[in-house]
């Protein structure tokens, strides 16, 4: 007890000092502007960080998208207006990338749409099923919760390398296929299979995170509702359809929005696993932006910035659409 008392005495000034400093600064400000406007001062530090690291780069990116040449500094770059956007959208047939001036950009868009549709659907579906299973009283529930979450802790590079070794021609998957009498296959070289595997690997790597969110949503549903539905004679499916899903819907929208944003921004897993190949079959928009702006000898920052603006605006529209749908469904 005595020791705790000493610690308390030592810690007290350490805690009180910052309080005293903040008090010295904020009290005169409050006296000057009034208590109603003090909220602005509290959010100011956060806004400053947001402004410097998010808003300013966005504005700078907007400016870069309107400039040409290969110089790095904005003041050295000639203003070209919407020319970069015109280059990106110069296309005879948007469904045929080969007819577009920037064919790789349109291949990136086409691949990104396919990837997002399948990956987000996969994430939502498998996370939901897993969360429902892990929410039941099964044997070793804690162990299984850890197992499903474990891939989230792995670096994307590690995940991609592990799966590269599994999927390579002399890899584990082909060994298993051959044991069962099948023929080995170059899984990542096949243009049809490559997209399947990048979706599969990213779902495997990320679903643990979304499972955890859905699990938290499931656990927040009051058990009394299930008791009531049971008294009313509802079966498991009706429980799920009329109790679980409506109450889980807000959490589902969070998962949908987060996984969608992550899917559109996907780069690391795919870059290591397939390099965007075979050819450009799994090259998404983000890789196009990276290659155009940084990887080539003559770095086209303007075109890259314009493409990233298209990506950002698409993402914004999709997210707003989802939020609108989410609000409508919750009102209904």
């Amino acid at each position: 007890m005595r020791a705790l008392g000493i610690l308390d005495e030592l810690a007290r000034p350490l805690i009180l000092l910052p309080v005293a400093v903040v008090d010295r600064i904020l009290t005169p400000i409050q006296k000057h502007v009034g208590i109603d406007k003090m909220g602005y001062f509290f959010v100011l530090p956060n806004l400053l960080i947001f402004g410097i690291f998010v808003l300013f780069p966005m504005l700078l990116n907007f400016y870069y998208a309107m400039t040409g040449g290969t110089k790095l500094f904005p003041q050295d770059r000639p203003f070209v207006g919407l020319e970069n956007f015109a280059t990106l959208f110069d296309c005879d047939d948007f469904l045929s990338p080969n007819s577009c001036q920037e064919d790789l950009f349109w291949r990136g868009i086409s691949n990104t749409i396919q990837f997002v549709v399948f990956q987000v659907s996969g994430i939502v579906l498998f996370s939901l099923v897993t969360a429902l299973v892990l929410n039941r009283k099964i044997v070793a529930r804690g162990f299984f919760r850890s197992v499903f979450f474990y891939p989230v802790l792995l670096s994307p590079v590690v995940v991609a390398l592990i799966w590269k070794w599994v999927l390579q021609h002399e890899g584990v998957l082909n060994a298993i296929v051959e044991i069962f009498g099948g023929e080995s296959k170059r899984w990542l070289l096949d243009t049809n299979w490559a997209m399947f595997w990048v979706v599969f690997v990213s779902v495997w790597a990320l679903m643990g995170f979304y499972t955890l969110i859905l699990l938290a949503g499931l656990q927040s549903i009051p058990p009394e509702l299930y008791e009531a539905s049971s008294i009313d004679g509802a079966n498991h499916w009706q429980d799920f359809r009329f109790v679980t899903m409506p109450l889980l819907m807000p959490t589902m929208f969070v998962v949908l929005v987060l996984s969608l944003i992550r899917a559109v921004q996907m780069f690391d897993h795919i870059f290591v696993l397939t390099g965007g190949g075979p050819g450009t079959r799994t090259q998404l928009m983000v890789q196009y932006i990276y290659t155009t702006g940084f990887s080539n000898q003559i770095q086209l920052f303007g075109l890259s910035a314009a493409a990233s603006m298209v990506l950002g605006i698409s993402l914004l529209v999709l997210t707003l659409l989802q939020l609108r749908l989410g609000n409508q469904s919750s009102l209904a």
Partner: peptide
């Protein structure tokens, strides 16, 4: 590489190489 996986024919690939180089040099 694109020609190898069938995304472009060989002639399209060669045309694209030339376009890419011309565009990059024009920007430079």
């Amino acid at each position: 590489t694109q020609a190898m996986v069938g995304e472009l024919t060989l002639d399209e690939a060669i045309d694209r190489i030339q376009d890419d180089v011309d565009t990059a040099l024009a920007e430079q």
